Computed example of a mutant assay.
Amino acid sequence: MINHTKLGETSFRRSRKLKQLIDDGLITCAGNVRLKIYGMLNCSSGKRMKAENRIFFSTIEEALGNNYRPCGHCMREAYQQWKSGGHS
């Protein structure tokens, strides 16, 4: 897990570091620390959250392993499965 605010001191530096990590394949999804929800990097809900609440994961398995649930907007099918009790 990588906390968004730990990527750099300024918004610009965080943005550049984040792009590098995504391009290198080290980040594939993001989550909300307070809500314990993860989703895709292009999710409109995720893009609106505050940087201090945003966390990044290298894999979906990492997010699930940290007890995050799928986003109901960008991961509708996984969310429905989680909601119906298909989670551990």
Rank of each mutant, 00 (worst) to 15 (best):
I2L: 13
I2T: 15
I2N: 08
K6M: 06
L7G: 03
L7C: 04
G8W: 01
G8E: 02
G8P: 01
G8H: 02
E9R: 10
T10K: 02
S11C: 06
S11E: 13
F12H: 12
F12Q: 14
R13N: 12
R14K: 11
S15C: 07
S15T: 10
R16E: 09
K17W: 02
K17Q: 04
K17N: 04
K19T: 04
K19I: 05
Q20P: 01
Q20A: 10
Q20M: 05
L21G: 04
I22G: 00
D23R: 07
D23Y: 06
D24H: 02
D24N: 03
G25Y: 01
L26Y: 06
L26D: 08
A30W: 03
N32R: 01
N32D: 03
R34G: 04
K36A: 01
K36F: 00
Y38C: 02
G39E: 10
M40C: 08
L41Y: 00
L41T: 00
S44G: 09
S44D: 08
S45L: 11
G46I: 09
M49N: 13
M49I: 15
K50I: 06
A51Y: 00
E52Q: 08
N53D: 12
I55T: 12
F56V: 12
F56S: 08
F57W: 01
F57Y: 01
I60E: 15
I60H: 15
E61Q: 14
E61I: 11
E62W: 09
G65F: 11
N66C: 13
N66V: 13
Y68T: 05
R69N: 05
R69L: 06
R69I: 10
G72V: 03
H73T: 12
A78Y: 15
A78G: 08
Y79F: 15
Y79P: 05
Q81S: 11
S84F: 07
S84T: 14
G85I: 12
G86A: 15
S88A: 10
